[in-house]
């Protein structure tokens, strides 16, 4: 069984399945992409953002 035939028959035969896969994939992609890029950004700007230096400014919280 050719791999391309399996892919075609499960995902691309019906447009409803195709579009559904794309939407679901977009959702998953956005989650993963956002978290990855956030980590990259934080690493590139380490020590400069408020969340990094907050601990040295916040006095005892009530």
């Amino acid at each position: 069984m050719a791999v391309s035939s399996i892919i075609y028959n499960t995902f691309m035969r019906r447009n409803s399945v195709f579009v559904g896969t794309i939407l679901f994939g977009a959702f998953a992609f956005e989650m993963g992409f956002d978290s990855t890029i956030d980590k990259v950004w934080d690493r590139l700007n380490a020590g400069k953002q408020w969340k990094d230096i907050k601990h040295s400014y916040v006095t005892s919280e009530e």
Binding site: S4, S5, Y8, I22, G25, A26, F29, E30
Partner: peptide, 27 residues
């Protein structure tokens, strides 16, 4: 055996473009 190769390739390209556009539109 390779009958679906061209179709899968085309639809995959189209689908991934749609996926990226959908993610961008949602954001």
């Amino acid at each position: 055996k390779g009958d679906d190769n061209s179709r899968v390739y085309s639809y995959f390209m189209i689908g991934s473009l749609g996926l990226l556009s959908a993610a961008g539109a949602k954001a």
